[in-house]
Design a protein around this nucleic acid. Structure first.
Lengths: 199, 199
DNA sequence: TGCCTTTTTTCACCTTTCGTTCACTTTTCT
DNA sequence: AGAAAAGTGAACGAAAGGTGAAAAAAGGCA
């Protein structure tokens, strides 16, 4: 059951009030908060919210509103923003589609997905066609695998280590040699947090 | 049912609006966003979107648009049966847990998941800790990547080719040499259909 | 028990927002 | 050129949101 704007506002207020104070507000308090003069307006809003299943209340009981927690079905839809091939710029698509990603592969942050093109990252155990899940941020701690642009042009996907004012990009494969770049030539686009492959 | 350009734009706008605000826009708001003067244009677009099954709405109800999530969004629970390390038997756990796997990585058949231990399959771009999704069957067609037991003991994970009465197990990495075994020493446990990795 | 306070519930009525429908025009695509 | 898709502008009715006052219930307290 969808909510209207006002209903949503009131539900949000109820959530916050309950979280902060531990008990629910009276109709008068809700009315005062929204600058509404009549309790009846609030009363009707609460009635609708209850009908739509967002709250529960005991009749005639003061401050008896409870919030019904939605099992928001934990939407795991994440945008597939485009494709990445080592040595090329990241290619974004105009209207990114949303694809399902298991919650276990996501982080708290802002996640997106890139399709890997070519086998240039095979040394990181990443193959053509793989989908990598990335957390969008512009910094990384030592040892994290980052999606980064060198000189704003070449995309790369390597483990990052900072040392003596420069950055070492270390391939996952220990037999390969690392790349060293100055900090200011590197723009971190995100940190790799997961991978999906379809055979 | 395919969408036109405009219909897709509107659907995208609805998705974003709903995601950000938690309630649906009014027809007037949609019209304003697209610079359209008449509500009727919006009305007809919504009608088409509903007929094509992309949204649902309640008649005469304000802000009552709901997005019908495509079934592609579904995730299925698949049992994590145990772990596999090349050269060892597959190690099954007693009470397999069920983990969510996006539908896109599953097949019609009977699927299960194995956790990869060790980096012995690094040449197949499969690393320690990866989860592989397997379709359970005892046969495979040429070129499929199979989970198989040699002599009932050693697990392996390679591309399979039948030739002149024996079986060639070809590593994904073309620089490595294939293994040849007699048909009757090999027991196919399933075919790899997907992979998930958490960093 | 009866009284007071706080809070919810109900009434009749009003205003604004919103969805729906009409007849008609313009644009886009084949 | 013709059909489908997209858009115009105005009118109307229904739903949502709100007013103000009064009644009814619940709980605390002397």
């Amino acid at each position: 059951m969808p909510l209207t704007k006002r209903q949503k506002e009131i539900l949000t207020f109820l959530r916050e009030y309950l979280k902060e104070r531990g008990y629910s507000p009276s109709l008068a308090e809700i009315a005062r908060y929204f600058g509404i003069a009549s309790l009846n307006a609030i009363y009707k809003h609460l009635k609708v919210l209850e009908e739509k299943g967002f709250i529960k209340r005991l009749s005639n009981r003061a401050r008896s509103i409870r919030i019904v927690e939605q099992e928001v079905a934990a939407e795991h839809m994440v945008p597939l923003l485009g494709s990445i091939a080592a040595g090329h710029p990241i290619e974004a698509v105009a209207n990114p589609e949303e694809i399902p990603v298991p919650e276990s592969l996501l982080t708290k942050g802002n996640n997106y997905v890139l399709r890997v093109e070519g086998n240039s990252m095979i040394e990181e155990s990443i193959r053509d066609g793989d989908l990598i899940i990335v957390e969008r941020r512009d910094f990384a701690t030592n040892g994290e695998t980052v999606v980064a642009l060198i000189d704003g042009q070449e995309a790369t996907l390597k483990k990052l280590y900072r040392e003596d004012g420069r950055v070492r990009l270390q391939p996952a494969n220990p037999t390969l040699f690392p790349i060293f770049v100055e900090e200011d030539r590197l723009r971190i686009q995100g940190v790799v947090v997961g991978l999906m492959r379809k055979y």
